[in-house]
Design a protein around this nucleic acid. Structure first.
Lengths: 329, 329
DNA sequence: GGCATTCGTCGAAGCGCTTCGACAATTTTC
DNA sequence: GAAAATTGTCGAAGCGCTTCGACGAATGCC
């Protein structure tokens, strides 16, 4: 193994000088810098991560806690994970993966042993058991999703309230007077996950403001057909539909078509879903960019690592993308 | 921060004794062990990961390289990742996530800097550019998937050849004399990914052995209906179908039904797919257990870290699960 | 032109742990 | 019952790096 002292000898400088060349924490003459860099390349030197972590008290690794649960669309999670890793790399950090089931103990472990400098938690619940630890830990953290009480935490999520509202507003704009939101599986609501409630709230508020009648239904993806049938049976005059349930979108679509209704002629259909899905099915959608959320979360984490204090809550705007499941304006 | 010397003082022993209690590398009297453990708990001591890595030359972290590409079913990847992390934890290791696009440089970086002790690579291609590095690196690695030349490498994968053969055999058993395999998207074949070819080879070999006529078609999930129609147009007498293409399964199913054929009465349908998908659609399937593959890969890696020499190639058997897309025997 | 800064580099200390050799005390062996 | 082996513990060295204070040399300032 080639170490910093080897590089120093080869370049004719002291080890500390090599270190300063690498970190840029003190000024170094151009000539020296060049010589050192050449030696580094010539010898193939790589700083030892552990030694670095020990001496500098920084591991340059962040923890990413991924959810295991059902009810969240796996491809979205994966996209966010990939985006987070890619983004972390651009800040010269690596990502240590933890699963939800490591729980509080896992967080204490990786933080307490200085394995990681900071923690990114995906899929936070309203009354998440990890909140107290995250507040008391000596390392910064960022949560993806909003708990009931975000005091003292940094949280980021899509603006589902706005997404729900945008659906209702656009459906109202299109002239529908009775509209429906088909949301997450019942289990997600029961668990008190914030995002489902927020979409619902936005949808209902905007509908009320526009004076259109709104109904909201949960939907288990395995029983999408039944959900669609029941909705139209109970509310036969619904003509505008918003769906916030990725795995069910496709089934709902064919279920509605199977009732003889044409889309967009008889029924307007908006999906709250990632672009790739909406694009594939050619659906008007509120896009929820997974990559951007992952990137943004890492950016906030890096802010905190740099000693700054980013806003406690960040809501990522989603935008309406018109495709062919709603009538041309 | 509480360190090993604090624990030592509190327990009235030397730091090395504390270390040996923790590592078990030397015998320690029961009494001392108990006192030390009590002190550790009392003080909330956690060994510093960096210091440990520096002194012991082991980080207790493994790298996991995940694919970014299309053509592989995301939920399967996710399941394997989760299984790998969970499994690694059971060996007291953590997992550092790398993306495919870090490429050769990424492997050299994490290995060279001693950030990780070993590397797990998912989704290896036939002529993967990373093969030479993996062979020459000073840390052990395990590949999920088989390259063209696995010499000097440890590889593990599902036994797709056997899976393909099992499909053909069971369809022959059911009395079908003309059968088809609908495989991965064309891009996957073009890329020369091993698994697609191996399924095909097994299917064709077994069909030939049983004297039934076999056709094999690639399939882009976005054009499943066309694929189904073309197949039945070109080969109207096909009555047994195997599908090895998770995202397309559902579409293919409805496409075949849309031609007026009933499943299983007119058409036998076998999916090579993970259990949850096959279960949901109630399909007879060759199950490919993602978790087990992740676990097995980590187990092999740990073998190597312990200085053992596991077999160079491991094929995980898949089994036929009868459900209702084939006629009852 | 003298004094205060800034620049560029070095040496040494120290980060928190593991591990090796040493050694007294105990146990085993013939 | 003396010699040999084993057990349980300690002290010190060292893993490879960063960082702090020091200091000579170059530069800025009025």
């Amino acid at each position: 193994m080639v170490k910093i002292s080897d590089v120093a000898r080869h370049a004719g400088v002291s080890p500390s000088t090599v270190s300063y060349v690498l970190s840029g924490k003190r000024s170094i003459s151009d000539q020296t810098r060049r010589r050192v860099m050449d030696s580094i390349r010539a010898l193939g030197y790589r700083p030892h991560a552990g030694a670095r972590a020990l001496a500098s008290n920084r591991s340059n690794v962040i923890a990413l806690v991924v959810p295991l649960r059902s009810g969240i669309h796996v491809p979205i999670v994966m996209q966010m994970v990939i985006a987070a890793v890619t983004s972390a790399r651009s800040y010269d950090h690596d990502v240590l993966l933890l699963t939800q089931d490591e729980g509080v103990g896992g967080l204490e472990r990786v933080a307490g042993s200085s394995l990681v400098d900071a923690i990114l938690v995906m899929d936070v619940e309203m009354h998440d058991v990890r909140l107290p630890v995250l507040r008391s830990l000596d390392r910064p953290s960022v949560l993806i999703g909003f708990p009931a009480d975000p005091t003292g935490l940094t949280c980021v999520d899509w603006d589902f309230e706005a997404a729900g509202a945008a659906c209702a507003e656009y459906l109202a704009d299109l002239g529908h007077s009775e509209i429906a939101l088909i949301g997450a599986p019942p289990a997600v609501y029961e668990r008190g996950t914030g995002f489902a409630e927020r979409t619902k709230a936005g949808f209902q508020r905007a509908a009320a403001e526009r004076g259109v009648h709104a109904v909201v239904r949960p939907c288990d993806p395995d029983h999408a057909r039944e959900a669609a049938d029941e909705l139209l049976r109970d509310h036969p005059n619904v003509t505008g539909i918003a769906v916030h349930n990725e795995p069910a979108v496709e089934h709902l679509l064919s279920a509605f078509r199977a009732t003889g209704r044409r889309i967009p002629d008889d029924l307007s259909f908006i999906a709250i879903a990632p672009d790739d899905l909406a694009e594939r099915l050619d659906l008007t959608s509120i896009s929820i960019p997974a990559e951007e959320l992952g990137r943004q979360a890492v950016a906030l984490l890096m802010e905190k690592l740099d000693g700054h204090q980013p806003p406690g809550s960040t809501l990522l705007p989603s935008r309406l993308v018109l495709r062919s499941s709603t009538p041309a304006a």
